[in-house]
Simulated assay, not measured.
Amino acid sequence: PAGERTAAGARAMVPGEWEKLLAKRPELAELFAGDADGERLATWLAEAEALVERWFSLEDPTRLEPADRELYVETVLESGLRLRGFIDRVDVAPTGEVRIVDYKTGKAPRPQFAEGALFQMKFYALVMWRLRGVVPRRLQLVYLGSGDVLTYDPGEADLRAVERKLLALWEAIRLATETGDWRPRPTKLCGWCDHQAHCPEFGGTPPVYPLEARPADGGGAPQGRMEAI
């Protein structure tokens, strides 16, 4: 109930929710293998509780009644490309306006990298538009690690541009799959990568991709799926 949504109450739920998750997915216990005294698990739970409590400084849950939580969405574009993903939260105003909300446990990106972070949200917005015929009024990213909220109000032109970009990405994937020519895209993060032995940028050889790309029924349009979670 809305009136019982307090920070203290939410923090108290964290250990119990972890136990429920373990009951469903026992393999997650391996995350804390060798933690005989439970110190690592206790630290991790305390960090999770801190993130939960921080959220209460960003939004007022007593005033929220989400239309959907962890909503699975899927649609097929005219090209045959299937898009699907899970949306953390969907709010619908009495006037019908839609807000899509996603939670991040990390810190908000610097302004020059905000567009990359918003691409996932525009992906969701495109799927919702194709499914329900309504462009979401607002996209909202909640960064629990830093206590920031990033918002964006998309328009149809934005979503059409996202659709074109997705089609171009899928075409590049299809072509690379057919030819075996996977082009590396080096960045400053390459030094952290564990797969340099398989990367041409470091003199490695990519493994043979096991799947064939097939054209959509009745034509040469790209067929496949792209996911955002």
Rank of each mutant, 00 (worst) to 15 (best):
L81A: 01
Y124V: 14
P186M: 09
W18F: 06
V73N: 03
P109T: 01
A50N: 01
P61I: 06
Q112G: 09
A168H: 06
A93W: 07
P186A: 09
A2E: 06
R132N: 12
E17N: 09
A221Y: 02
M121F: 14
R99L: 09
M13W: 10
G180P: 01
R54W: 05
G218Y: 01
A197W: 04
A46Y: 02
V208G: 05
R110H: 10
R99S: 12
P1Q: 12
R89W: 00
P1H: 12
Y103P: 04
E171W: 06
W55P: 03
A46M: 04
G224R: 02
K122A: 09
G16M: 03
P210C: 04
T6H: 04
L166Y: 03
W192L: 14
E27S: 02
D217M: 03
H198N: 13
E65R: 08
Q120R: 08
P207V: 01
E53N: 00
H198L: 15
P222C: 04
W129N: 10
V98G: 07
Y103T: 04
R130N: 14
R11G: 02
W44D: 12
A125Y: 00
Y103G: 01
Q112F: 11
R40A: 15
E156L: 15
E163N: 08
R25S: 00
D102E: 12
A114D: 07
L71F: 00
A46K: 11
W44L: 11
V14K: 03
F113C: 03
T62P: 04
G3W: 09
L77K: 05
G145Y: 03
R110T: 13
T95A: 14
Y103W: 08
E227N: 15
M121C: 14
R110D: 13
L150F: 02
G116Q: 07
K20W: 00
E4W: 05
G9E: 00
A23L: 05
K20A: 13
P154S: 00
E178H: 09
L139M: 02
V135A: 11
G147E: 02
F56S: 04
A157E: 15
F86T: 15
R40N: 11
Y152I: 01
D217Y: 00
L211K: 04
P111Q: 11
V134G: 11
L139T: 02
L71M: 08
E178C: 10
R84W: 13
L131K: 14
Y143C: 04
S57V: 07
S146P: 03
K165T: 14
D68Y: 11
Y209E: 01
Y209N: 01
S146T: 09
S57A: 13
A172S: 13
R214H: 05
A213E: 12
V208H: 03
I173R: 11
G80T: 04
P111G: 10
L144E: 06
L175N: 12
P136K: 01
L83K: 10
Q120S: 06
S79I: 00
E97W: 05
T179F: 07
G224H: 05
R40F: 10
A117H: 02
G220Q: 13
P1V: 14
A48F: 09
P1C: 12
P154A: 02
Y103D: 06
S79M: 04
T187C: 05
D88H: 03
R214A: 11
A168K: 00
L166A: 07
A197F: 07
R82D: 07
W182M: 11
M13A: 15
G34Y: 05
L83N: 08
P200R: 02
R138N: 09
L83W: 06
R99F: 06
